[in-house]
């Protein structure tokens, strides 16, 4: 799974990083973004809903920062 590092970046950076990483990748690809921006908790699932991806859930990176996992395509 590709993990994107958006520590310290404000919104909409985490969603932007996901959208760019999703380009050219096939459905079913799993991506994760690590972000301390509190908006990401709402915006990553909202991005999935709007773009037809699947939100897999939130866990934590090794340093405790929130990590959001998604699967491309429905």
């Amino acid at each position: 799974m590709t993990e994107l590092d958006c520590r310290g970046l404000p919104c909409p950076a985490p969603v932007l990083a996901l959208a760019k990483a999703a380009r050219g990748r096939p459905d079913g690809t799993e991506l994760a973004v690590v972000a301390d921006d509190p908006a990401a908790r709402v915006d990553v699932p909202a991005w999935c809903r709007m773009r037809g991806h699947r939100f897999l859930g939130e866990d934590r990176a090794a340093d405790g920062v929130a990590r959001y996992r998604v699967a491309l395509g429905a």
Partner: peptide, 21 residues
């Protein structure tokens, strides 16, 4: 609130699950 000092998104949009940025 992308560049606001708090960085806290709107609690209204968040509670609705709407895109906050």
């Amino acid at each position: 609130a992308c560049t606001a000092s708090t960085h806290e998104p709107s609690h209204v949009l968040a509670a609705m699950g709407a895109l906050t940025h």
